[in-house]
Design a protein around this nucleic acid. Structure first.
Lengths: 217, 217
DNA sequence: CAGAATGCAAGAGCAGTGCTCTCTCTTGCG
DNA sequence: CGCAAGAGAGAGCACTGCTCTTGCATTCTG
């Protein structure tokens, strides 16, 4: 069983989700294809297991980066950098988690749950800065609107935050910016423009952090 | 030939890139699979043609939204909204263009070229606002760094802009934020949080526009 | 200790895929 | 009228996911 998962991990890392063939996995562990169906219900089942593993792996990287001994703002930037690095090292897994959803596959609740570990790590940093008073809470421009405010409140609670709703919104926006930049780079949208995207990424992560309100960069 | 392309379009829209089967396309046009190989070199070849079409379609939508009779800032926001709407109406095509790259496929230069139409439409709005003096050019915080400044200059030129490099950078960052938000929504990352994401999208597009420097929203 | 029950793997087979090769038929043109 | 070119058909190869049946070995039980 563990051997099957490990072979699946290798296949996924090398050939990607589309190329993840149950028969190839079977060959790799020295079984015939029908034999692996004793351990895994279907190809999608194996994929689900690998997705869960991958979510855990990014979260590990993110949490580790967030545990550095500096200011929350700098740890936020480090967290973003860790996401990017992980994506560069595991492009197929990143695509699986944050790219186009696979054809007929629908993530079960369990993976939806584990997927929140990473944003929770970021949220904790925001909360820490807010509590320490180093988070700049911008004067509210236009008020948020009923639905948006409600969604932000719910999201803040889900992430374990107790901050004003606009702060949650800014975090969400920064989050989309960070992932947008990483995805653009990894998916080849930045080719011929920011080709070594290191500087662009670093600058964007800092911008995102400032947008959230971090003043301790 | 045109029938094949049309059938491919339908298949792609319904079943997605992974489900795009050349045999199914053949069935749909009432041919046997080997016959369509007279018109299309391979499955990837058909996919490439469809990708080019799709790039043109988004660009059409973007340019149409950008041609409204209001201020550049508002047209920028409308453009973002058009991207989102197009993505909602053509989720599989959107995933093909901006999601995880397909397995062994590498976009030929031609599609890379047509892909710039959409960002060029956005760039034109920025240029227009800059020329009109309604674009706020933020005081430069930390200077940009050699590589980043060079990349921004090249990118600005490729997009037909003549504005300071930081403006180009801010546009690129806003761009990643916009696409990040749209992709997050379309790829299901926002489920259980911003579930009807209309308000979030609208707010984020406005935020992106302000980040670029538009003051005429 | 003998026999039954259980678990694991193999094999064959079905329906589908991309793609190639050969063959036939129709159509247009000199 | 005859010939060449093009369009489609058919068979076939190697691959995929998945199911069902069969065989073997281990383990549990009377």
């Amino acid at each position: 069983m563990a051997a099957i998962l490990e072979a699946g991990r290798r296949e996924l890392a090398e050939r990607g989700a589309d190329g993840l063939s149950l028969r190839a996995v079977a060959r790799e562990v020295g079984m015939v294809s029908s034999a692996v169906y004793r351990y895994v219900a279907s190809r999608d089942d194996l994929l689900t297991a690998l997705i869960s593993e991958a979510y855990g792996a990014v979260a590990d990287a993110a949490e580790h980066a967030a545990s550095a001994r500096t200011t929350p703002g700098r740890r936020f930037v480090r967290l973003c950098g860790a996401l990017r690095t992980w994506g560069q090292e595991h492009p197929h897994e990143y695509a699986l988690l944050y790219g186009s959803p696979v054809p007929g596959y629908h993530a079960p609740e369990a993976t939806t749950d584990i997927a929140t570990r990473t944003p929770r790590a970021a949220a904790a940093l925001v909360q820490e800065a807010y509590d320490a008073g180093t988070l700049e809470v911008h004067e509210p421009g236009p008020p948020l609107g009923r639905v948006l405010a409600g969604q932000c409140a719910a999201m803040g609670e889900a992430l374990g935050m107790s901050v004003p709703e606009p702060v949650v919104l800014r975090l969400a926006q920064a989050w989309t910016q960070v992932y947008g930049a990483i995805s653009f780079e990894l998916f080849g949208q930045l080719r011929n423009t920011f080709d070594p995207a290191d500087a662009f990424a670093a600058h964007t992560f800092a911008t995102a952090a400032r947008h959230v309100g971090f003043t301790d960069l």
